[in-house]
Design a protein around this nucleic acid. Structure first.
Lengths: 370, 370
DNA sequence: TTGTAAGCGTTATCAG
DNA sequence: CTGATAACGCTTACAA
């Protein structure tokens, strides 16, 4: 018994030694050889094939452990013609919104056995093209993409679609591609928010946001415009500031705006960051929010609930968007007939009313409508 | 001429047709066949091998374009025994700090021709093990990992190391693994911050932070302790609150703390979120910051500069950490002798002094030391 | 229940 | 400068 144990010990060690010396990883061949069985049996055992005897399976699994076997998905992918990998193109990962979409995507893709390759376009169409090529070259099972701000031609994406790779667009979509899309319902979010402002009694409004050549901001503007038009106000005749979506841009703008222009009752900011810039500029001039001027944001950035006053904003459910996007992709992959349908899913955002839009001295006139 | 053009047109179309019908992607074989040359020549041309005539290369590239050829990196990886992919394990992507590390990593890995597979451990050692297995199975060229909070055993990581996969630890490291590590110099960051508080004249301090069983918080505590001991104060004798690192925990704690305990002059919070929770609780009770009580944070979250008062904090240079981590990994990969060195890189953080620690009525006693 | 053998698309070695 | 050919590690008909 003693001897046997010793023998066994040496036996194990030899395998380990061989592993180390050759620096080569064990394959199913090694297992097959060691057990004097066929490699296909090993392959089947590794995927827990029902037609393999339990006892042989156990043998194989033991040996696998002994040899420190790690399956090689690359070989499997090559053989199967596709990888259990999906590619996700994101403008930037270090944005609250997008990193939450990623979390959502992973939460459905991982349990389904897929890995995520994340690529950043950094808002550049050139990078986006490179990303697409990389993903095609990696033979991913599908591609999730939110378009870069620069992207106005879609040949690179069409190429992927033509190759039979399922594609789902999320957040930043376009009409030209005939695939599944998951969007934020910016129109509704904006409309609801504007209704809230109206109900608070505000009438003299001002729009600030990113350039309306981007869908996001057009849609938000349209929602704002619609709500106003319903009570007989014309958004286009009220002040508008379009600029790059950053705290600084808006801060600088309001520094001078305050000096030269008459302030509205409320600022509708289509971006929390721009709202923040405005707030800093206004507060520096001694203006109280919302008493002297109210303001709302959009996106519900983490800081919105933390600043003073707490910022009214719109929650976008980024994680849910990721989940829905991933689910659609999985459906495409599993259908075996990718890109055969082109759906359009709207994620309905939710208005979060906070202190920054609480009218202390509401206009006596109620909304004329509804 | 007319005829030729027509012929050519049909010719192209046939290829396209075949591509579509078979849904099979063109390979170098197809190119070779179409051009009546050998597949090895095509392979060489695709990697721009110097010994291939310019004219044949051009032919090949043309045909590649015509056939809509996309290289198959899976096949290449299998043949070469490794993928041009590196794996990155991150506790959570939707954290400001980590998503910036990712950005940094990508900024050096992509130009070097590597792709990133990002996995989230979600602070679970089980997930971390699965992630490691996935990455090994994908035959990544290297692994970057920040340990989950649960991780106290490292067999899974050792396995990767033993298989010859270069591993670099970042942010959350451990002594037991003999690999390259990139850490935040929490001790120094905390020390510098405490010195600043001392210089502001604060003496009655309070420590709040995450559990000190985690390196991060021990180190920060030690820096704090050291600075205090230098002026003859004993940190251990001052109030301490350890809890989960969230706004809510700290908010709840201070709601009752204010009622029952005597407030310190300044709260040293080892987390911006906990600082924020405290601020909300204190301000709700009508306390003015920093006039009635000062407070500092750590990590320089985006909101730190936006709240009122602006929060003194410590900037961690997460992007730079990512870049350094990636550089170290690349060096390991290229050395061909992975995990042969084990370095320890400290990223020195920077103190950002803001309003929340401006002492309006400084203690007349200057620091006794330095 | 297990084995045989072909092949996935590359690259690398050797030979012209 | 180019070609033939053997892997790389796995899956999967088809056979037994």
């Amino acid at each position: 018994m003693q001897t046997f144990a010793l023998f066994f010990y040496i036996f194990v060690d030899i395998f380990d030694l061989i592993n180390r010396m050759t620096k080569k990883q064990a394959t199913i061949q090694d297992i097959a050889k060691a057990l004097n069985i066929s490699i296909s049996t090993v392959s089947r055992a590794m995927s827990d094939h029902p037609k393999i005897k339990k006892s042989t399976k156990d043998q194989i699994w033991d040996m696998a452990k002994k040899l420190n076997y790690q399956p090689n998905t690359i070989a499997a992918s090559l053989r199967k013609g596709k990888a259990n990998t999906v590619g996700m193109i994101v403008p930037r990962v270090n944005r609250h919104f997008f990193s939450n979409v990623i979390t959502g995507v992973e939460s459905v893709l991982n349990p389904a056995g897929y890995n995520l390759i994340i690529c950043q376009s950094e808002e550049s169409i050139e990078k986006e093209k490179i990303n697409i090529n990389t993903l095609i070259a990696s033979r991913v099972s599908g591609i999730l993409i939110s378009l870069s701000l620069e992207t106005t031609k879609y040949d690179h994406i069409k190429r992927a679609i033509k190759m039979g790779i399922p594609v789902v667009l999320y957040d930043r979509v376009c009409d030209e591609l005939d695939v599944c899309k998951v969007e934020n319902d910016d129109f509704s979010g904006s409309y609801d928010l504007t209704r809230h402002l109206i109900e608070q009694g505000y009438r003299k409004m001002m729009w600030i946001g990113g350039s309306r050549k981007f869908n996001t901001y057009t849609n938000r503007y349209q929602g704002y415009r619609k709500a106003l038009s319903e009570i007989g106000l014309e958004a286009d005749n009220m002040p508008i500031f379009e600029g790059s979506i950053s705290l600084e841009t808006s801060y600088d703008y309001f520094k001078t705006f305050i000096e030269n222009e008459q302030l509205p009752e409320v600022i509708f900011s289509a971006s929390d960051y721009m709202a923040m810039g405005a707030i800093l500029a206004l507060q520096e001039k001694g203006l109280r929010i919302p008493d002297d001027i109210a303001i709302s944001g959009y996106s519900n950035e983490p800081f919105a609930a933390l600043i003073n006053p707490k910022l009214t904003s719109v929650e976008q459910f980024s994680k849910e968007m990721g989940q829905e996007t991933a689910r659609l992709l999985l459906a495409q992959i599993q259908s075996g007939n990718p890109n055969n349908v082109s759906t359009k899913t709207m994620i309905r955002p939710r208005l979060i009313v906070r202190d920054s839009t609480q009218n202390k001295n509401p206009d006596p006139t109620p909304p004329t409508n509804d």
